[in-house]
Amino acid sequence: MVSTILFSAFAVLAVAGAAGLVLLRHPMNGAMSFIMTLIALAGLFALLSAKLIFAIQLIVYAGAIMSLILFIIMFLNIGEKDLPDESNRWFYFGGGAVVIAPLAIFLLKVVNKLPSCEATIVGDSFGSVKGVGMVLFTEWLLPFEIVSILLLVALVGAVVLAGKREGKL
């Protein structure tokens, strides 16, 4: 019973935060509202007994990554006059909603058709550092390793696109 209430609360917060990210005009407000989404997601992970993911979500996403983003936004010192003119944005939101609506209705129908099932208590090792580590480094080794290639590509790409380029050649 409590978990259902908690789930609904976190779910509403997560969606509200995401909506705020899109709707709020100032990037700072958007980032703050996104932090709300990330924390609510951490709560949802905790409800699923994913202890490690819960901690990582708070420390890495809500903590490290978002503070970096906030730092950059503050660094750029964006004022009201720097923001682009978005007077007709409601028009675009409306258009986007019309495009997305059929898909959303379809997905809602699908979710409603899901068979109901009782929540069961999973074992103690589920979601713990040891439990996740065991699975990650045995069965899921390959995806874990190729993520490092992905991060390397992102790093090289950032350097290439944003870095200073001297007139080589």
Binding site: L150, V153, A154, V156
Partner: peptide
């Protein structure tokens, strides 16, 4: 994503 990210850049 590895493929797409490299191609975007």
């Amino acid at each position: 994503e590895i493929m797409s990210l490299a191609i975007y850049v």
